[in-house]
Nucleic acid binder design. Sequence first.
RNA 1: GGCGUUAUGGUGUAACUGGUUAACACGUCGCCCUCUCAAGGCGAAGAGUCCGGGUUCGAGCCCCGGUAACGCUACCA
Length: 506
Amino acid sequence: MTINPEAPVRVRIAPSPTGDPHVGTAYIGLINYIYARQRGGKFVLRIEDTDRARFVATSEQEIFNSLRWLGLSWDEGPDVGGPYGPYRQSERTEIYREHCDLLLANGTAYRCFCTAEELEAVRKQQMTAKLPPRYPGTCRHLKPEQVEGNLATGKPFVVRMIVPPHAGEATTSTTFRDELRGDITFEHNNVDDQVLMKSDGFPTYHLANVVDDHLMHITDVIRAEEWISSTPKHVLLYRAFGWQQPRFWHMPLLRNLDKSKISKRKNPVSLIYYRQAGFLPEAMINFLGLMGGGMPSPTAETAAGQPAAKASEADIFSLSDMLARFEVKNIRLGSPVFDLTKLKWLNGEYIRAASPESFFASLRSTILSDSYLSQIAALVQTRIETLGEFGNLTHFFFADDVLPTPEVFIPKKRTLEDTLAFAAEQLTVLEATDWTHETLEPALKQLGEEKQWSVKENFMLLRAIITGSTMSPPLLESMIVFGKARSLDRVRRFLDTQKKLATGKR
RNA sequence: GGCGUUAUGGUGUAACUGGUUAACACGUCGCCCUCUCAAGGCGAAGAGUCCGGGUUCGAGCCCCGGUAACGCUACCA
């Protein structure tokens, strides 16, 4: 049932283009990359774009850029091709359809005609009755002629997998091996009849992932811990198809400082942010490599070879060091906190270790790049009288944080509380808006109307938060040049700081 | 609520097949250096290994029972 241990190693990461590329993707990507490279295997990049509701058009390219920035290159993927393409799931819908039909035909899946509303109602009922929310299985017992009838009338349907026992079968649980934790067992009465094919004709993750991993000859599924609960469904699918299953490795989840799953509300998670804020890719990779402790202990190192000149150097290593010594098997299972403080220290170490030339080159390729500077120049040309004033108007483009005083950011007729509440609303709107003038302006204005904030108050507040001042180049253009990731971070930090100030005063 | 996973200073990690005063790094604090701030150097505080039992001469490592945190519980991944 399990994959032949001799099979050449093939692993993949499968990010979803639903927003900015995520540090979690980089982390899992790194582990997969190391695992493959250490075994002479292949590292595949697959784009899981089956969620059309959350699809973001620019996201895929940003994923490519960010992973390349970190030095994680893939052997097969949408942009580089490969023998098992296409590598974008939206281009494989026919494949999923065929495989879905296979399951329908061999009796391991069925069509379900329940509407979303009906299911929601059932779920609510179950919740109030303190029962686990489960699909009631209504359509599992539909007679063939009922199915035909529904099909004939064009009633929309989804396809669900049958979690055993099937009629006349005794299986009641599924056990699979997690390479890091050992055997994990799930009783089937806790596993729902998962939707495999949505009514829009797109597969869910569960179907697409199993079909693709099989067709792409993936030997090791190395993914985040959040998938453990759905692994039995995947195992059941491999069996339903009669396929060998890969090895499963579930990595610990990166956490916020408060131990919750890492999230943008509590921590910058966008790789674009880290790049634009001036983190070096080497430092980022190094830091991610520290998470989970896959590198051998410093003591083991010194015992074997020469003692580390400086103890802290045990924490400092490159991607190629990791290829030489990292052990995926040694990953610690407790979920590590993504601690910005230590990342910044590490980044500082890399900056200080760089030659003056390469440090300057880093500046010139990021925060002082021609493209960044020329965009900024365009914004201030008509607003300064000597070139020396350039910095007066633009320092916020080059600062890591700005802190407007209450006199600056609170509009005359508003209270601190109202202002912060409105800023929080602005953040929500900005998060959901494409980063162009045409979309930002109406979105912000609409919010202002809803909350009875004048355009002037509205924009002035945001200007204060972003630039630290009430006088600046045009706000939206500035935000666009500054970038979405960093702009959002600035608003979040502003709110955070004000919250801390408020609780401190009490 | 159900199911699953995890658990070593504030944070990341270490501790050989159970074996001495639980180690290193970040952070914090102090001192030195210094025109300032960093960097650098020196030093300190901070955990008795989630809790309770058990096995053992001996437990962070093994066993049992709790607890807590986190994840999943979608026609999202």
